[in-house]
């Protein structure tokens, strides 16, 4: 399964990255928490302290509203192209769920917030998942597929 070209977008990517960082800083300022998608989702899925689910649900709603706001302002929905098959979506999603639970975080929690706090755990986690992701993409696209 080979990919197709996507446009190199340094400016929009940088601007988006700054917004992601701004949301993490704002959450720390308001609630004193790191912004991790894994933590926010698992708090919704599993039973946590009462009254703890409301703000998580509100944040997820805000996240989902993000691309809709972009659509409203620019008149165009950001592209979401999924170049993989349904079995890969299902297997990949399940594996990501297991991995981020045991690894205690993902690209947002470790990759952005943890690394910004200079946490050695997050640096090791980030390096690990970047490497295994790169190897996986290489194997799927250049060893198995083509």
């Amino acid at each position: 399964m080979t990919g197709f070209e996507t446009e190199f977008t340094p400016l929009m990517s940088l601007a988006g990255g700054v917004l992601i960082g701004a949301s993490a800083v704002l959450l720390m300022f308001l609630q004193g928490r790191v912004m991790g998608a894994t933590g926010i989702l698992s708090g919704l899925v599993t039973g946590t302290a009462p009254g703890d689910k409301g703000w998580r649900a509100a944040m997820v709603a805000g996240m989902i509203a993000g691309p809709l706001l972009v659509l409203a302002v620019t008149g165009q929905m950001p592209a979401v192209d999924v170049p993989v098959s349904w079995p890969m979506i299902a297997v990949g999603g399940f594996i990501v769920g297991i991995g981020v639970t045991y690894g205690s975080g993902c690209t947002s929690g470790h990759g952005v917030c943890g690394n910004a706090r200079l946490s050695p755990r997050s640096m090791v986690a980030t390096l690990t998942f970047m490497i295994t992701c790169g190897i996986t993409v290489y194997v799927i696209r250049h060893v198995m597929g083509g």
């Binding site: 988006g16 992601i20 912004m35 509100a58 691309p67 706001l69 972009v70 192209d81 170049p83």
Partner: peptide
């Protein structure tokens, strides 16, 4: 929490992270 999520969501959307391709 909604506003934090919204800023994050817009960032993910315009950055291209939202696009698996």
């Amino acid at each position: 929490a909604f506003i934090v999520g919204l800023i994050f969501g817009v960032g993910i959307a315009i950055s291209g992270m939202i696009n698996p391709a």
